[in-house]
Amino acid sequence: MKLLSGEILANKKYGSSLYKLEVFSPYICRNAIPGQFVEVKCSTEDATDPLLRRPFGIYEIDKRFNVFSLLYIVRGKGTAFLSRMEKGQNLDFIGPLGNGLKFDLDDGKKYILIGGGIGIAPLCLAAAHLAEKEKEILFIAGFKDNVFFSWEKDIAKITQNYRIFTEDGSFGEKGLPTSYLAANIKKLNNSIIIACGPSDMLRVIQEILVNAHGFTALSLLEERMACGIGACMGCVIKIKEADGTVVYKKVCSDGPVFNLMEVIFE
C-alpha cells in the first residue's frame, strides 16, 4: 500500500447519481487484486470537511493503459465532492488496501457473484479476472430502481451470463437476487458464491445457504472506516470463528473478504 496521487482521466456520469471515475496509476494496476479497495481523500488538500477518506472497492483495472476505475453513487458530502472532480485533476488516494480475493483456479467450481446496489463494483473486477481465466461465472445483480441502467453495458462486456433484478421492475427483471438464488439453489451447487451489498441481502444469502450443500460463500464487507490500514479499529464486525468463539475483526485489514457463513449480522 502507498499514499498515491493519480491523474483523473475521466469522471463519467452513468446515471442520475452513478459515476465512474478513471484514474491513471501504474502502481495500483500492477499490485491490486479483486476485492481490494482504495481510500480516497474527498476534499481539497487542506480542507477538513469531509474529514475522513472514503473507501471504494476497485471496479476495473486496465493494465494496458495503467488505468483503474471506481464506480460510485453520490450519497453524501464525500461522493458529491468526487462527482465534481474533473479530468486532469489529481486524485489523492491510499491503496491497494485489504486482503482481496485469492482464487484457486483449478478447483473446477463455478462462481456466482451476487451484488446489491453499489456492491456490484468490486464484484465486477472479480468477474473480469475470472472471465479472463475462462472460469464459469454467473453474475446476479440487484438494485432498487434503474439508476444502474448504464452499468449493464460494462457487465455485458465481461460476461453474457448475468441477471439483473430491480425491486420496482424498472430495469431487468422485477424481483430480488436472493429470491433467484433461493429458487435455483439446487442447480447452482458446487459453486463459490461471492456476495457484496447491503447487510440485509447478505443475511438472506446466509440463511439460504445454511441448509444448502456444495457451496463456499465469501462476502466482501463494507463498513465506515477511518484509517483503512488496521490501526484505528473503527471498522470492526463480529465473526463467529470455526471453533465457535466470537471475535471482532477489522473489515479494512482482516477483510474485506470474509467467509459469509462466519459473519454475525446484528
Binding site: 477538513t48 470537511d49 463498513e223 465506515r224 477511518a226 471498522c235 470492526v236 471482532y248 446484528e266
Partner: peptide, 17 residues
C-alpha cells in the same frame, strides 16, 4: 474486545469514536 459496532461516525471536521 472493545465496544459493539458501529464505532465511528464522522462529524463536521471531526469524528466520534
Amino acid at each position: 474486545e472493545g465496544n459493539a459496532p458501529p464505532r465511528i461516525w464522522e462529524t463536521s471536521s471531526g469524528m466520534l469514536n
